[in-house]
């Protein structure tokens, strides 16, 4: 793992970290054999920060998120979220987290309002309180006008915002956003960024996975890069860039893109006008 220049400065200050993982391992066994998707991840996310979790496709980002959000069993290691052991008390964790996964999984046969109300009721709110909370959240994500339309008619950006709203019904301590802007147009992406900032400003810790380095640079106070199931570097965006500049003796300031390519040992090639990532 590449050390960051301010690794001590970025150590959590709160006694109970929002997320803590030690030696997290996930293996999948199928007909074609055993695949080790996550191979000993150590993470500490402090309360109130926006933490970015980056990595190439298949690096283990989503599997790590699925373990932390109780959706996938942990093969090895330990993890706590909001101070609660994920393996020992998954229901306790579920009470404290909000989850918006890849592809905005929504029930297309419901209206936006029905979906948020349902989510709130599953978190124990009464019908009246759930309706009130849905109203607040739909207003927050600017979907009040579309609230009574079926979700199948929503645009990609609207679905993402609705997914965000439904993840916030119970005022979670930690919000997991798994690639929240993948597939969105630039304008919709900016709207989601604003929402994330607004949510974080209210004190919610945000754990964000993304493939967009610009997104991580814009939103995250600290980030970790995972590759091949292991964390390869961790720090603030500024510290990671400064570290690369110092290590490589670069004259110009590197971007987070350069950091990513450096630590994952990848290069970018332009083929037929498309930029693609290749292993070096």
């Amino acid at each position: 793992m590449t050390p960051s220049t301010d690794s001590f400065a970025s150590e959590p200050t709160n006694s109970v970290p929002a997320i803590s993982a030690r030696g997290l391992v996930k293996t999948f066994t199928g007909r074609s054999g055993t695949v080790e998707a996550v191979r000993g991840v150590d993470l500490t996310v402090r309360q109130g920060e926006v933490f970015g979790f980056l990595g190439p496709n298949g690096a283990g980002k989503s599997t790590t998120v699925r373990m932390l959000t109780t959706l996938t069993g942990i093969t090895g290691g330990t993890a706590t979220v909001a101070g609660i052991d994920v393996a020992k008390d998954p229901d306790g964790v579920r009470h404290r987290i909000g989850v918006a996964l890849q592809e905005a999984g929504l029930d297309m046969r419901q209206t936006g309002r029905e979906l948020v109300v349902l989510q709130a009721r599953l978190f124990g709110l009464s019908r009246a309180d759930a309706s009130k909370r849905a109203e607040e959240l739909l207003e927050l994500v600017e979907l009040t006008d579309a609230a009574d339309r079926l979700i199948k008619g929503y645009s990609g950006g609207m679905k993402r915002r609705l997914d965000l709203a439904s993840a916030l019904v119970h005022r979670p301590d930690v919000l997991f956003l798994d690639e929240p802007t993948t597939g969105l147009d630039p304008a919709s992406r900016l709207v989601v960024w604003d929402e994330v900032r607004r949510i974080n400003a209210k004190g919610t810790t945000v754990f964000l996975t993304t493939q967009y380095l610009e997104e991580a640079d814009q939103l995250c106070e600290r980030l970790a890069i995972i590759d091949d199931g292991k964390i390869v570097t961790e720090g603030t965006p500024a510290s990671l860039k400064a570290d690369l500049k110092a290590r490589r003796g670069l004259e110009s300031d590197p971007t987070l893109d350069d950091v990513f390519l450096d630590v994952t040992g990848r290069q970018r090639e332009r083929r037929a006008g498309e930029v693609s990532e290749v292993a070096s």
Binding site: I97, V99, L101, L106, L122, F123
Partner: peptide, 16 residues
């Protein structure tokens, strides 16, 4: 359908 579109995971992430 819900498993495929991810909504089932959303329900599984609730404390029910």
């Amino acid at each position: 359908e819900e498993i495929e579109n991810g909504y089932f995971d959303k329900l599984r992430a609730t404390p029910i």
